[in-house]
Each structure stands twice: as C-alpha cells, then as structure tokens.
Design a binder for these strands. Sequence first.
RNA 1: GCCAAUGUAGCUCAGAGGUAGAGCAACCGAUUCGUAAUCGGUAGGUCGCCGGUUCAAAUCCGGCCAUUGGCUCCA
Length: 664
Amino acid sequence: MHVTLPDGNRLDVPEAATGADVARAIGPGLAKAALGIRIDGSLGDLLSEVPGGASVEILTERDGEVVALMRHTLAHVMAQAVTEYFVAQGALPTAIRLGIGPVIENGFYYDFDLPRPLTPEDLEEIEGRMRAIVAADLPLERFPLPREEALGRYRGSGDPYKMELIEELPEGVAITFYRQGGEGGFTDLCRGPHLPSTGRIAPHFKLMSVAGAYWRGDEARPMLQRIYGVAFLTAEALEQHLWQLEEARKRDHRRLGAELDIFVLDEDVGPGLPLWLPRGAIIIEELERLAKEVEEAAGYRRVRSPHLSKEQLLLKSGHLPYYREDMYPPMELENVRYFMKPMNCPFHHKIYAARPRSYRDLPLRLAEYGTCYRYEDSGALMGLLRVRSLQMNDAHIYCTEEQFEAEFMRVIELYFHYFDLFSIDDYVMRLSLHAEEGLGKKYVNSPELWRKTEAMVRQAMAAGGINFVEIEDEAAFYGPKIDVQIQSAIGREFTLATNQVDFAQPGRFGLSYIDENNQRQTPLCIHRAPLSTHERLVGFLLEHYAGDFPLWLAPEQVRVVPIADRHTPFAESLQSRLVKAGVRAEVDARAERMNAKIRDAELYKVPYIAIVGDREVEGETVSFRSRKGPDRNAVPVGAFIAHLRDTIVARSSAVGPLPEAAGG
RNA sequence: GCCAAUGUAGCUCAGAGGUAGAGCAACCGAUUCGUAAUCGGUAGGUCGCCGGUUCAAAUCCGGCCAUUGGCUCCA
C-alpha cells in the first residue's frame, strides 16, 4: 500500500504499517523525532495502523497539536501513578477503579473510584510518581481485543465503569487498549491517540486540584474523585498559564468587589444575598439610569410590583409546577400560602389584565427592575454571578403575532447597543429549544405551539441576519429562549442577555385584546432582560474592566489631593464645583504625604486624581493623573470639569482628548 | 443537592494541646511634603458556630454554618 506525504509524493509502505513504520520509511532522523501523525487531517498516533492511500504528515514537537497526545498519555501516566501509590499503601489493585481520563483545554483529568479521599499532599506524591514514570521512558503499545475478552479484563477486577464504557461501544468499532511498560505494564481501555513512550512527555505539567465528579455527570450515580492537571510543551507555556491563573485571580470580581468596596456577602444575611455598599449602589444606579433612558426612548413604560404574592398567582402562571424547586418555600398566613417572587412576569400579566386592551394599545412594553428571589442550589452560588436575591433588567412586551418579528428584532438590537457600550465583542447567541421528552414535565404541553413559536423565532433571527446556534432542551417552560453567552476577561463564561417568547402564560392568564374586527385575541409575550441581573452584570463588569470602570460608572470619579494642608480649602472648593457639575469627587485631606494619597487613589482605581498645590491655587488650575490618558498639569478648572462632564454624559469608555488650552 | 478543601484582627497570613501574633488598614500625635507607601504611639480577637475529650483546646474528635473548587471538554 502507499500513503501520500505533505509534499505530494507517494510513499510505499507494507500492509498494516503503523505511523512509526511510515516515519521510519521516510528517514531515521524523523523516526526519532516523531511524536504523532496527522492522517487525512486528524490527529493520530504512531502506534496505530495507517489506512492505505491516506494523506499523512509525521508530527514532531514542532507541531503544537502533539500537546494533545502528551496530555492524553499523561492521563494514563497519572492513572498508573495513582494505582501504584495506593498499592504501595497496601490497597488491592482492584480497589482502584478508573473512570475516564480525557484531554481538556490546557491539560487533562482522570476520574477515580478510590478507597479514600485524596489530599493535596497525595497530589504531590502522585505527581512525583508521574515524573518517575516519565523518566522511566516506558514504551506504549496498542492492541485491540474482542468485546468479550475486553469485558473479561474488567469483570475480573470488578471495575463497573470500564465495563459500562465497553458495553456502550457500538458494534463494529474496534475496542482498543494501550499498555505502557511492556508485559504486565499499566493497561487502559482507550481509543488513543498517544505518544510512543512516556519518556516523550515534556516535563512541563502540574497536578492542579482534586474535585468530586459524578460518574458521567449524573447525580444519581457514584461520585468519583477527579484529578485535574495542566500540561504544555514548553516551560514558558506552563509558566504563562500559571501566570494567567494568577492574573485571573487578581481580577476576580469577588476580590475586586472587596478591595473596591462594592459589595459584601455576610453570613448573618444569608448565602447568595449580597449587600451593596455605597460604591456598589452607585454602579447599580448608573446602570439603572442607562436602562431607563434607553427603554424610555424605546417606548417602554415602568411598573412596580410587590416582592411576594399568594400561591394562586404562581399556580396561574404555571411557575409552581415547573419551578418550585428553584423557589424559596412558602410562608403561610391566615391559611393562605405566600411565595417570594422568582420572576416579575406574573405581576406584569396582571398589570396587562388590569385594563381592557385594544390592538391599538399594542405593543405594550412593561419594564421593572424589581428584586426577585430564587433558591439556587447552594453549590451553584458564586459571588455575584449566581445569587439568590437578584434584580433583573426586566420587561415584558405584549404584542400581536404580526408585530412579533419587529418587536423581537428591537430587543436583539438593544443587545447590540449594550454590547457596544460595554465593549463586548466576543459572544455567542444561543436559541434554546424544547425537547419532545420534556413536554408536560419541563415544558408546557403544547407541541404545536412550540413548533410554531420556535419557527417564528428562527425566522426572525434569520431575517435579521443574526448568527446563532441552536440548543436542544434548554428552553424556558413557557417558550423558546434566546440567550447570549459571553466570557469575562478572566475567561469565565456566563449568560448575560436573555429573552424568551411566551405563548403559554398569556393564555393561562386570560390576557386578551380586541382586534380591528372586534374579535378577542390572545397576545404573545416576549420576556427580555438584555442586561441580565444587576448582580451578574456588575460581577461581569468588575472582571471585564478589572475594576477600572469607565468614568460614567466609576463610583468615585475624581479624587482631589491637596499637597499640603493650606491647599485643602482650594481642594474643597474644587470638589464642590465638581459635584455641582454632576461629577462624583472626594477630597483626601488626611495628614499623609501626597505620594501616599496618590498611591491609595491609584489602588482604589479612581479614574482621575487631581493634585492641587501652590501652583494650582494661584492659577485656578488642576494637575491630574488619569488611569487611561497621560498626566496633565496646569489645566484650567473649567476645562477639566467640561471634559469630565462630556465624557460622563457620552458614557464613553475611551477618554477623549482634553482641549489643549493651557498646555501641560 | 453531592464530593473535597478552607474558615485566626477590616485585609493578607503565622501559630498545630500550656498567657492569641505580624504586616497593612483604623485611631492619636508629630511632619506640610509636587506625582505609587513619612515617623512614632494606641487600640483592635467568644481563633466561623455548637457540643465532646482533657487539669488545660485556636490546636484533638463530632455535628452544623459559610466560602471556594468541581459535578461529561466523554473509552
């Protein structure tokens, strides 16, 4: 048989030649350097047979993708190390059961069922053993087994996980094993691909953590112990990765939230119930001001509703059957059960229903930033990104079917407006659909309405030229959902904007309008929250901006630093001029040196530090530091204030040039 | 919810059965200074909570609470 090389030449090789044979046929030097092979574009290993006629390319350490082989082999090395480690402590080899050990971004993991929980010290020991296995340079071999024989290997050791994996492999697929270290060496069910020997693993790896993980992600099944590791081809790449983790830690919103006095979580208040400090409240109020301006211009009207309601409202909306697990339990008063509200929609439906509606009233857009309460799993809580008390940037749009597409697109345009304002350019739009199996359980049981509504949304998205992906079985219980996944600057992924199309609740609430022909009709409802919750948005923005908020959002916009006590009166008059102009300014009149005041203001990430001394007092000027522009000296106070005000009003995240009046 | 780790002053951390510590922050005093930490002093704690073991517990044991990481990126 033959294979085709990257230069287009054909190379004759014996039948059933492996990647290693191909490399040898090309040349001894390459055979020595070879780590893997690319077969018809996909990554393979030197141990597997190459199909005749394939286009192949031998990979060496110069090909970055071989890192995947290395990570995969490291997973096996780790499994061997863990097995040896426990056997050395007296455990029977059959007491160590293996789950899966795949390659992941930056590294690998392996799931183990072990006699006892692992500690961080165990990880060090295991990593040490891994390095010994790498140094021992054990050769890897690959061999297939018939299904029965494969099962037999694990039936003997009583490993239910591997048996399950084998049983689920479809007929006709080769069941392969990899063995490292020859006869009696560590052997694992695996489809590969792997490095040819453990000695080819670059020593730039590190075990990071151990965590519980349900077998196959199913909470009804056993909890295994998962060890995570990272691995790279070069020491620099590993260092870079660890440095990035450290940087990510520094801009974690929980850390910044504490350092910048934005919010706190207090044990006595309760998990997932954040307290907003004055500086955090300023940010929220600025965001609300933004939303109100945008929504007023877009024809929304604001409403308000209470924090709790009687059970019957939520029975009517359908929340109780579908959503009860995620709600705080009821309180009972005078034989009536009340619930904290998990959503605003039932109230808005009631507001819609409070008056008879004509087609002339539609679309009716009701907005509210009321606080909702959701009983999230304790293990799901995470800083501000997942909380139990939350304020949504919420609104419900009631419209006719004819109006749907235009209204829907106006919501999507709102998204884009906000993304632009917050410099979010990396996102994925997802259309979440129902799944047949969930009808009547997770989802309202109206198959034909689901299909119709989903088609309407798809059509609107397509007509608007929006790129999106479709996700099965993630819809809201009352209709399909569109949400937007974004990544914070530290790579944390979460959902910001979201909206849903609701064909179910308007009917349940008996909402109606009278159309042109004097006929009673049921409106559609679009639920939308383009800015997510205030909590999540602030958490995201903290990480996104690393605490360096654009001027309009900064809790303190200017810190005035008098150089000596005699400059304090001027500093205070400057502050009051700033405040009058709508700028949030404070004076640092402590008996500290100027250098210390500047340092403190910089660490507090105050966008502008205005320094005033003799020169400024005399000339009615300021000298300032800006976190985003060059320092300037002797700027007339009026020009400084005008510049700040313009930047704030424009909600600019960039800093425009200051008029070159008095120079600097 | 489940598995694991962590919880000591406002913050970052030390202390591992025998009188609770440091740095920073806070407060007081001195210093009045030109672009990232002036000097000195004072105060600050039911060692997450409850219980147990012990002559003696921050330390050992148990329970609870909270926080953090993880709970398919599939052999």
